[in-house]
Design a protein around this nucleic acid. Structure first.
Length: 424
RNA sequence: GUGGGUGUAGCUCAGCUGGUAGAGCGCUGGAUUGUGGUUCCAGUGGCCGAGGGUUCAAAUCCCUCCACCCACCCCA
């Protein structure tokens, strides 16, 4: 920015890629989080809160040294004592760290944990992608069983239904394990070598660096060639194939709709076997609202000798909220008290306090003009307006107006709560 | 990191073959001294993103920055 003495230029703004969440849309965030907690608890998941700041090594090892996330997209800095710390770019590694650190493997049963909160990734912001973004996720650690996979995935669908998301699609795949995936990648490499020259520039590079990524290519001209590439599902090993089949069978049995996508690959190294994703139209290029999968090798990658097979997912809360936001309704206010004059303000204060103790939402208007108060009550979307003026104080009965119908009645103070209890 | 788009009133935007700014919504006041929503009238509000250049004259043309947005790369 050029130097200037203009006052506007020194205004401090939110850091690039971060944003303020304001009412009324924070109501949608709270709604999503409240429903998530309710659903998770019903499946016996419990909340875990891990630090936002972690040792950089956690992500370097857990997420994969070679990934873009680690090489250039982390918020990493040196602490005063010289230690390298990083703002978490995701939560799975942290949860696994906590699992190992606190020996949660010694606790009975599968450890079912959920979390929600901000993550950080330093990249160019775009629609549905921010540098500080929010995720809601779960991890079920301690079992390799496909039964857990099916339950986790069922819960995903349950959650999205209950939160009010419409027109979403659950995509499912298996990416094999350390036994079958290397062989498949080798095969893929060979096949790619034959067709590579006809593919787009990016794919030619991917064919070398990360062959699985070619399957994700969005260039239309490349699709015919990509369709001819071998599918990983035809090359699963004796453990992965039945595992995947069981997951599918259990999901069908529970009536969970899904689509098999052999080309659904995961970017992170630690995923194996089951992977899944939920996409939603009308989200632009960033159309995935949830991504998840099994990560049986993660604990070992972190250097742990404690076996900790797990499966989990995380929801892109920013994106989910985005799809729900057009349905925001004005915040509800039960009662607006129009207090006319000092004496009325005092009485209104006491009345408001008592009603608020009864969990009614109440606002007190202290503008002396009734017209002003009525306007404000209307703008705030109040169901009722209570007029407390000289007449009312003299009579000891206040005027309660139902805003939608315009009907007014005179009530003693103790009768008001009862009126508010009515649905409309 | 790469490409494209957009920056004008609190918000959404028009004006851009150069002549120093408009609309709708919002906000404020009034019609209605104790009655909102609809309607009508009036008012408030802009160094036209920043800096420089061309010109008698720049929101408008040129250059450079900056910011935001969208997409790519990559992906949690």
């Amino acid at each position: 920015m050029q130097t200037s003495d203009s006052a506007r230029e020194i205004l401090i703004r939110a850091v690039k890629g971060t944003r303020d969440l304001l009412p009324p849309s924070t109501a949608v965030w709270n709604h999503v989080e409240a429903v998530a907690r309710r659903v998770f608890e019903a499946y016996n998941y419990h909340e875990i809160r891990t630090p936002i700041l972690e040792d950089t090594q956690l992500f370097a090892r857990g997420v994969g040294q070679e990934t873009d996330i680690v090489t250039k997209e982390m918020y990493t800095f040196e602490d005063r004592d010289g230690a390298s710390v990083t703002l978490r770019p995701e939560a799975t590694a942290s949860v696994m760290r906590a699992y190992i650190e606190h020996r949660l493997d010694q606790r009975p049963g599968v450890q079912k944990l959920y979390y929600m909160g901000p993550m950080f990734r330093r990249e160019r912001p775009q629609k549905g992608r921010y540098r500080q973004f929010y995720q809601i996720g779960v991890e079920a650690i301690g079992s390799e069983s496909p039964v857990v996979d099916a339950e986790v995935i069922e819960m995903v669908v349950e959650l999205f239904s209950r939160v009010g998301l419409e027109n979403f699609t659950l995509l499912l795949n298996s990416v094999g394990c350390q036994n079958c995936r290397p062989a498949y990648i080798e095969l893929l490499r060979e096949e790619l070598a034959k067709v590579a020259p006809t593919l787009c520039e990016d794919c030619q590079r991917r064919a070398q660096t990360n062959p699985l990524r070619v399957l994700d290519c969005k260039v239309p001209e490349d699709q015919p060639a990509i369709d001819q590439l071998p599918s990983i599902l035809d090359h699963l090993c004796e453990i992965c194939r039945p595992h995947f089949e069981t997951v599918q069978r259990l999901l069908k049995h529970r009536g969970v709709q899904f689509e098999i996508r052999p080309r659904l690959v995961r970017g992170l190294d630690y995923y194996m076997r089951t992977t899944f994703e939920v996409v939603h139209g009308a989200l632009g290029a960033q159309n995935a609202v949830l991504g998840g999968g099994r990560y049986d090798g993660l604990a070992e990658a972190l250097g742990s000798k404690i076996p900790a097979p797990g499966i989990g997912f995380s929801i892109g809360e920013d994106r989910l909220v985005m799809t729900l936001e057009d349905r925001i309704s004005v915040p509800s206010l039960d009662l607006f008290i129009a207090a006319l004059g000092d004496a009325a303000v005092e009485r209104a204060g006491l009345l408001a306090r008592d009603l608020r103790r009864g969990s009614y939402s109440v606002e007190v208007g202290f503008d002396g003009k009734l017209k002003r108060s009525m306007e404000l009550a209307n703008k705030l979307g109040s169901r009722y307006t209570l007029i407390v003026g000289e007449d009312e104080l003299a009579r000891g009965r206040y005027t309660l107006k139902h805003m939608a119908s315009g009907i007014q009645e005179q009530l003693a103070p103790e009768e008001i709560a009862q009126r508010l209890r009515a649905k409309e």
